[in-house]
């Protein structure tokens, strides 16, 4: 009896470590190692290192000089920084709003079209979303080229001259926004379509019996039921639009006179053109904190939504 129990204990000790199976522990370690090695080396360490660099004055070559909060103070006192932050919010606000609006309208128009034509249209509208942003930016330069691009042809047909889209302070950012919306709306449509497909169809039957028109159904039934989807799209679009880079760098490089400059491009310019590593790091950390706030708000909102639906 007692030998049996000690045998069991011995076997347990051989295969278990506390409550964990030894085999599981070794496997878990090996399975997690590659992913976490990447996360630590290329995500966590650089984040902390950037924080450290943001407290120094450094040009990548000479020894970094500790300057405390000076980089951050300079930022907050710099007109350019506030202008660029403003541009970033402007771009983010309008591109998010328009992509959501157009994407929603597309989804509402195509939701009940399940035939061949409907599917073809859904495919078509999604294509811009998979395109390479920088390449489309080149295409946009040629579309909006005021000397001999499509813009010149269209305006010329009406006997007018095309505006110089990218040289005009007010039009330039809208040219960039138009590209952002063009690429994002198909994604929004797809997510809305999947949201719509989860709505119980009998709701509409009831509404129709009550004599509600299609427009009324959309306004009073569909939209409220799509709230969680809208929240999700709103926050993910905001977060990704805040980080726009490719399109602006290729189309305007931030010009004319910073009218289209955005945070990520400014960080890039500070770091690799003006070689101010400290200031660039401080900017990155600022952007990170901004996005963190947005992400926390997102978790809050979508979390509450999930709870209230449960």
């Amino acid at each position: 009896m007692s030998t049996q129990r000690s045998d069991a204990a011995r076997i347990r000790r051989k295969y278990y470590w506390g409550k964990y199976r030894k085999n599981d522990l070794v496997t878990a370690f090996l399975f997690l190692l590659p992913a976490f090695a990447v996360f630590f080396v290329f995500k966590y360490y650089p984040l902390l290192d950037s924080l450290r660099i943001s407290f120094t004055s450094w040009n990548f070559f000479s020894a970094p000089k500790p300057v405390g909060l000076q980089n951050y103070v300079k930022l907050l006192n710099s007109k350019t920084f506030w202008k660029i932050l403003g541009n970033t919010f402007y771009y983010t606000f309008w591109s998010t709003l328009l992509s959501l609006l157009l994407g929603l309208l597309l989804a509402l128009c195509l939701f009940r079209k399940t035939g061949r034509r409907g599917n073809a249209l859904k495919t078509l509208f999604f294509i811009p979303n998979i395109t390479t942003a920088s390449a489309v930016a080149i295409l946009w330069l040629w579309l909006f080229n005021s000397a001999n691009g499509l813009s010149e042809i269209i305006f010329g047909a009406f006997g007018k001259t095309s505006p110089a889209w990218l040289l005009d302070k007010n039009l330039a950012i809208w040219t960039v926004i138009s590209l952002g919306v063009w690429r994002a709306m198909g994604y929004v449509m797809t997510i809305y379509l999947s949201g719509l497909s989860q709505i119980d169809g009998t709701v509409y039957e009831a509404a129709r019996i009550d004599g509600a028109s299609e427009a009324q159904q959309a306004l009073y039934i569909t939209l409220p039921l799509l709230r969680p989807t809208t929240l999700f799209l709103l926050t993910t679009n905001l977060i990704s639009a805040m980080q726009v880079f490719d399109v602006v760098q290729v189309m305007t490089e931030g010009g004319p006179s910073n009218a289209t400059n955005v945070m990520n491009l400014y960080i890039y310019q500070e770091a690799f053109i003006r070689e101010r590593a400290g200031s660039a790091a401080a900017l990155s950390i600022t952007l990170f904190l901004l996005l963190l706030v947005l992400t926390v708000i997102q978790r809050r909102l979508t979390g509450e939504e999930a709870r209230s639906n449960a």
């Binding site: 290192d49 980080q243 790091a281």
Partner: peptide, 16 residues
């Protein structure tokens, strides 16, 4: 990691 924007640490990543 999901919360980190892809460009948050470009200065340090470049040095790394």
């Amino acid at each position: 990691v999901l919360m980190m924007p892809s460009t948050v640490a470009i200065v340090s990543l470049y040095v790394t």
